[in-house]
């Protein structure tokens, strides 16, 4: 996420809608991207984005620039996305299991095929769905959004070793599944 000038933040804190729109144009993509990769649902991602920006607008005056704005937004986004994930995980676990089964079958059939953007996105969702929310958020922040370990630790309020451990477990899971697919492919 690009750095936002303090003057813009102050303007938005004083209720200037144009300044706030400027912030949205810079941070909106990031917030929406995390929400979408965490929830795998466009409507949920839009809801998270909307909630996060309304919270930012409401709380910007009390923000006082104590923490980095970026970290503050990361934290709010991740918390909002995790809330949605937890809310939905209980409701749709069974439906997702079924969907996953179908996707596993499809994926091994089309490993060498040329896949368009939509399919690529679906594959990404499939990979992320294999992880629990804590691991998923670390992968999204590190590999999709490009945050450093330090930034992830700050955003999630955990120490750097925990970031490393979650990343390790997540990558091992993905590696194991990926290998299985390659072996399946080689057998054919």
């Amino acid at each position: 996420m690009q750095k936002i000038p303090k003057s813009i933040l102050k303007g938005a804190a004083n209720g200037n809608i144009a300044a706030f729109e400027h912030i949205y144009r810079i941070a909106g993509g990031f917030v929406y991207s995390i929400a979408l990769h965490m929830t795998h649902n466009n409507e949920d991602a839009q809801e998270v984005t909307q909630d996060v920006f309304l919270k930012i607008f409401k709380k910007l005056k009390g923000f006082y620039f104590r923490a980095a704005f970026k970290t503050w937004v990361y934290r709010m986004t991740v918390n909002a996305a995790l809330d949605i994930c937890r809310k939905h995980s209980q409701l749709s676990r069974k439906a997702r299991e079924f969907e996953k089964m179908l996707k596993i079958k499809n994926l091994s059939e089309e490993v060498h095929g040329i896949i368009d953007k939509r399919e690529a996105h679906e594959h990404l969702e499939y990979w992320l769905d294999l992880l629990n929310p804590d691991q998923r958020v670390v992968i999204v922040l590190r590999d999709i959004e490009g945050l450093s370990y330090k930034e992830i630790a700050r955003a999630l309020r955990i120490n750097r070793n925990t970031v490393r451990n979650r990343l390790r477990r997540a990558r091992l899971t993905l590696y194991a599944v990926g290998r299985k697919e390659v072996i399946l492919d080689e057998v054919r």
Binding site: G28, G29, Y32, T49, D143, R171, Y175, V182
Partner: peptide
């Protein structure tokens, strides 16, 4: 298999209706 698919993911932008 693990790192590249995420790093080369297409950037997403929120639909205009959100703002």
């Amino acid at each position: 298999n693990v790192v590249s698919p995420f790093r080369h993911a297409d950037p997403v932008t929120p639909p205009s209706g959100v703002w």
